[in-house]
Nucleic acid binder design. Structure first.
Lengths: 342, 342
DNA sequence: TTGTAAGCGTTATCAT
DNA sequence: ATGATAACGCTTACAA
């Protein structure tokens, strides 16, 4: 009575009996171990599929000391709220899931909300995962760094920090900020705002690019137009309202995310300022909505697919005991309606 | 030399030696077993925190036959593409993560892309998780149903299907479709389009509500204004373009997602039709962008937080061998600018 | 090329 | 109230 997918789970011992061999032979056959005769191997593998036998991953893990699982951690204590609502997360999560699955790894997902110390090492010490991927190092830099120095296999999506002990994969944020600001400046805009919480490493690097773009052109930027707004649309709205009212000559906006940009366009509209005629707006991420807002959003596209691949690939290198290098990926300016020249 | 978070992992045997008791005592003390003297319990627990000892979950799982893990599966074979890009997913994922963590469960995340049969039972048979939560039963209904009949602990986010053997948690989609259409009809709109792939159970139920709203008022709905568009903005765009051009008298749109609605507003705008003056638009989900688009989106809000809680709670009931009932949650109409009366 | 046997770190069943 | 001891289902030296 093969298959059926029901009934008590078969064990390797059962398979051994069924095949008339020893457990070790089954184990090796299923692992494609070359020392097992090709014929035997094929027979046992056929038998397993026929009976729907699958190796118990828990037992395997206990013995082999490998979980074949990657922990994906999203530190959220920076802004308490659902920062996770940003579509950026589902995007990278989807790609991570693909990349992990392609390599036969499972993906354990957790949010970390308390700013308590040791969650990185815990994810590993706790032996549920072979490596940890942190999405958005944000304020967690210290924690990650300490864990990495102690030998924990951690990689993070985020900004490359000088002297950091852990591997990062992320976009060239300076380039992004620079491209965005340059685009607006080259279109004759002169009074640019920067919206985004510079307490986050990645954002502060985007801001550096924003500044660099001005400096290269010998132009000044206005500190009163720099707002450390959060990612939540609600907050973004509150933070930017006074700006719009107080800065009549504002003619361009570099936002740290598409969501902030979209929110800003709305706020501007309510104040009677048109996008792009009066104010040009550039977002960040090129999330799926960006192309379909009104007006469509000019934005900086990050290659999240490649990023996810790189994260997983590096995690596996660390697991294998090899070394891995950080990666900073170029970004691309996508010009759409929100920044069109008047 | 306690703590330190480094060095070789402590085992229960180590703790036993350290505490001068047997392994069983440590095990029981850590499990707060009442048969262990309160004093001993406290001492051992203190020791564990001091030395940073944590029970090896793999060994525990092997022995106890429980993984304390929930598998969250997202079947994606319906539309091949990144359906996952919809912010709805990150929303529910975030809430699921919270709900699982609150109960001491880990969350294993996987996308299922191939439409091969047995992925539900595999997630369990494979013994990586104690239960499976499926997000969006979509075309997977059959598969889930079969698995559930065989006793697999599965719960799904989605539409309640008559005669289904598995537990579902979802919104009252008929009510949603009805609310959306009624809102537009009551504001004098008469030629409504419905946009959404009715091949998906949830969407077809929303459509039923759309129809009911018309019927209750003795109004006819126009089949040529019903478009089975997909969730991807790109496709939504292509699918709806001809509609806009071909139906000059169209004055209302009920969309199956906020993303589709936003995309539609853009398409309308390009064709010279204003929202809400010429055409009123209602979305679905109340994703974070909805409140901040231009114009802000009238939409149907689902209580995703409660939904996630209910899913996890039911999954745990099934794990415990108890029975669980399906849940259909009311939705709420959120009126914003995109449907304002002319 | 295959088999034997010793663990991996817990929990659960008996005893005491 | 605590301790021995036997599993749980695999992998991997070491033998044959």
């Amino acid at each position: 009575m093969p298959n059926g997918s029901s009934g008590p789970q078969l064990t390797m011992k059962d398979m051994a009996t069924l095949a008339g061999v020893s457990e070790s032979t089954v184990s090796r056959a299923l692992a494609d171990h070359p020392s097992i005769a090709a014929k035997t191997r094929a027979r046992i593998q056929a038998l397993s599929t026929e009976y729907g036998y699958t190796i118990n991953p828990v037992a395997r893990s206990l013995r082999s000391r490998q979980t074949r699982t990657l922990a994906v951690v999203i530190p959220l204590f920076h802004d308490q709220a659902q920062h996770l609502s940003d579509p950026f997360f589902s995007l990278i999560l989807g790609h991570l899931a693909d990349a992990a699955a392609a390599r036969g790894y499972e993906m354990l997902l957790s949010k970390v909300v308390d700013r308590d110390q040791a969650w990185v090492s815990r994810a590993i010490d706790t032996r549920r995962a072979d490596a940890v991927i942190v999405i958005g190092q944000s304020v967690a830099h210290e924690t990650i760094d300490v864990a990495a120095r102690q030998g924990a296999p951690v990689v993070a999506w985020g900004a490359k920090v000088a002297g950091a002990a852990y591997v990062t994969v992320g976009s060239d944020n300076r380039m992004g900020g620079d491209l965005a600001a340059s685009h607006l400046l080259d279109n004759g805009r002169r009074r640019l705002a920067f919206l985004g919480d510079r307490g986050l490493l990645e954002i502060s690097q985007r801001f550096e690019g924003f500044v660099a773009a001005h400096q290269r052109r010998g132009l000044a930027w206005d500190p009163t137009l720099v707002i450390d707004t959060r990612f939540e649309p609600q907050e973004a709205r509150c933070d930017t309202l006074p700006l719009v009212r107080g800065a009549p000559r504002l003619d361009g906006v570099v936002a740290a995310s598409d969501l902030i940009a979209i929110s800003m366009i709305q706020v501007l509209g309510e104040a009677g300022r048109r996008t792009p005629e009066d104010v040009g707006v550039v977002g960040f991420d090129d999330t799926p909505v960006a192309a379909h807002t009104n007006p469509p959003l000019t934005t900086i596209r990050q290659d999240i697919h490649a990023g996810a691949e790189a994260l997983v690939e590096r995690a596996l290198r660390l697991i294998a005991g090899e070394s891995a290098t950080s990666l900073e990926m170029p970004v691309e300016l996508i010009v759409r309606g929100s920044s069109a020249v008047a």
